[in-house]
Design a protein around this nucleic acid. Structure first.
Lengths: 245, 245
DNA sequence: AGATTGCTTATTGCATACGAAAATCTGTAT
DNA sequence: ATACAGATTTTCGTATGCAATAAGCAATCT
């Protein structure tokens, strides 16, 4: 049985009990209690991203439900959301399967990501305050430190944090949400190649921050585009290297 | 009672009966029968887009369900999908409300649309075949004809069709899906200003098609950006005119 | 042997049931 | 009249039940 052994909710069977345990798993505070399906969504997404649930794997509702200690209903709803975001495929009358990204799709996603991130960098350069710049430097330092320490986890986290912050700086909420989704998926795709290009990436990050600091939108856009394009190329090369055709 | 009077399913109460009537309403053929929630999704989206369901309106699950002749379940699932796409807001324990776009949000969406469409035009210019170009001309002619006939419906449809086709030409599926979603929302936003700039728009369309025909990506991008930016400006002006602050 | 048909089982999709939270209403006190 | 407290109603969120479909398997036919 390929049941993952992650959160596993206690025997608590009431709605409240299930919610609490799952929420703590997701480490979130809720004023107005978020629906259970939200916690389930986050739990499942996490399981997919960290590859506990493998691409192509058939996700049986009742199994996930029992694993998380809830009923099928919230699981269904979470799975459907995961579908619209491209994490799983829902085949009518057959159920959910963890999405298996094709090379072509990954490449397309990375190019879309390029376009969106480039635009966000441009906007960020137009709007960043000195305080924002200070924060950017901080994130950059953290990333470089993590890289020096060869702490993969930390580098990945720092990378995500830096990009997320620039995205926020753009001031365009619609754009930011889109990038958040796309980026997460992109990271999932190129996770295998991890830190093969760590050094270069953080040099490029420095260039991006410089452009934002100087308030030069065109330059920021150019450098960000270069950066994300390099990532895309790295992905391609990695792919060609590992699948020698 | 603000019950919409649109599809209204026959008294058929079985699963099969309800599915059939809704499917025919959505005018779709299904080999492997699409889930009912899909049909409900389309029906609700249509009701929102054509403003039968008004922004801010509280959507009560049971009412929608009875109106469509199904149970709450598929309605819930459809509503959740509509939320992830930005058509409704789901407030915990309160239910669904048709999303009310703010001016800021509309502007942001239109600028994202600009970026995405611009990129798709660039790709289209790189890839379009002579056959594709022929089809583009055809769509263009249809639009101009509709404009001459002052048939608003037709113009809107032709406009959507042309943009959709260029989007397809890009060959980037991920991008295309994104544009489809964004565009549909954008049209919903600026629907009020309808055809105030019909003439100009179709002149610009001609420019875009020319650039694609000549296979000049940079030019296609430039012109498409100009076009979508003009739309955005028109939206702003319309807004400022109608809400004199 | 290989394909085909009918049966069994597993799993989904929808409907319904029920408890809990929010909104609304009512009556009372100030 | 207004504000507040409590009860009532409405509506959601989750759980469960049931019919229908798809996959798996065995027996049969060619």
């Amino acid at each position: 049985m390929s049941q993952p052994d992650a959160p596993l909710i206690g025997a608590g069977n009431t709605r409240r009990a299930a919610r609490d345990s799952l929420s703590s798993a997701a480490a979130r505070k809720v004023e107005r209690p978020a629906p259970l399906r939200q916690a389930v969504y986050e739990a499942l997404l996490d399981l997919i991203v960290n590859r506990t649930l493998k691409p192509g794997q058939h996700l049986v509702e009742i199994e996930l439900a029992e694993h998380l200690g809830v009923s099928r209903q919230p699981v269904r709803e979470a799975l459907q959301r995961l579908q619209t975001e491209g994490w799983v495929d829902l085949r009518p009358a057959q159920g959910a399967f963890v999405h298996t990204p094709t090379d072509e799709e990954a490449d397309q996603l990375l190019s879309v990501r390029n376009v969106l991130e480039t635009y966000s960098a441009r906007l960020a350069a137009e709007r960043a305050t000195p305080e924002d710049v200070k924060q950017l430097r901080k994130l950059q330092n953290e990333g470089v430190a993590a890289l020096k320490a060869k702490d993969v986890e930390r580098v990945v986290a720092a990378n995500a944090a830096l990009h997320a912050f620039i995205t926020q700086l753009s001031g365009n909420t619609v754009l930011a949400e889109m990038i958040t989704t796309v980026d997460r998926r992109a990271r999932w795709y190129y996770a295998p190649l991890a830190l093969t290009r760590g050094e270069d990436a953080w040099t490029e990050h420095a260039d991006i921050i410089d452009a934002i600091t100087l308030g030069e939108p065109a330059e920021a856009a150019r450098v960000m585009s270069h950066h994300t394009e390099r990532t895309r190329t790295a992905y391609r090369e990695h792919r060609d290297a590992t699948q020698p055709k």
